[in-house]
Amino acid sequence: MSDAALLRIEALRVSFRTPEGPGTAVDGVDLAVAAGETLGVVGESGCGKSVTALAVLGLLAVPPARIETGTIRFDGRDLLRLGEEERRRIRGREIAMIFQEPMTSLNPVLPIGRQVAEPLRVHLGLTEAEAREAAAGWLEKVKIPAARRRLADYPHQLSGGMRQRVMIAMAMVCRPRLLIADEPTTALDVTIQAQILSLMRDLKEETGTALLLITHNLGVVAQMAARVLVMYAGQVVEEAPVAALFEEPFHPYTQGLLRSIPVLGGRAGGAKTRLAEIPGLVPAITERIAGCRFAGRCPHAFALCREDPPALWAIGPGRRARCWLHLHPERRRHHG
């Protein structure tokens, strides 16, 4: 992690009030994104990746959510100490976000041109005509056909892929320094996914925006990110440069994730192999776990794992892992 980080989250802890009692959704997350960099954050649903993103923007509903501890520094300012008005000025202007569901993330009763123009009006004080013109330009940039004629269209007149393009245009109009994309392609058809990813890559290159890409899809991360963070049950369990992670995953959870990706023509000789799965379920956020949170599902777990929580140790250049195997490599079992 360089000190020139644009975004630096330290020891972030977010709890939720749930009907089953208080639960910890994010438990001591550290991460940093440098200016212009793409960081992939990977994990199953419920691992705390979206909550972390919403905490950065200040969009968590309090209550039921509560930020217990931690700092979120953006460009040197601790966002958690800013007032609501100051945070609002950052949202959409310096940090923008796109969401998973393009079908429901746009307002159904407002024309898309207006929705794309809104950040320009509120943050940059553009007149209606100027903002409209800029919105048209951005709709062209995200490759919406006949963009100018579609300014007056409503979201229901667009396909899912087109709506996600509108969302991207809306997020990028103020040229934010950080774009948070929470599962931006998960709800889309595979062919559309590739188009949206390549669009995001192009725009990122053009604007120099840093990207915090949240996904459960390691394939997406491989295409987009230079560095990856793997989260499990509210904690970072592994961090690595993307190539290293794919070549030599350290944490048993990361290994499990990689084994569960289908590989096209992966096995020579045409032998059919079952896709590996990680047995068991992610623990509920209200569950109290003494040792490692993954121990219950881990093929290598031994007594220590169930008693003491491992720390996030540096295990190599740019690499960290939260696993007792770092101190007890002899415990790693090798499967035939």
Binding site: L57, R89, F99, S105
Partner: peptide
């Protein structure tokens, strides 16, 4: 609704 979250994420008042 999601679009209200979007509106807030845009930094609207």
């Amino acid at each position: 609704e999601d679009y209200i979250r979007t509106a807030r994420a845009k930094g609207l008042r």
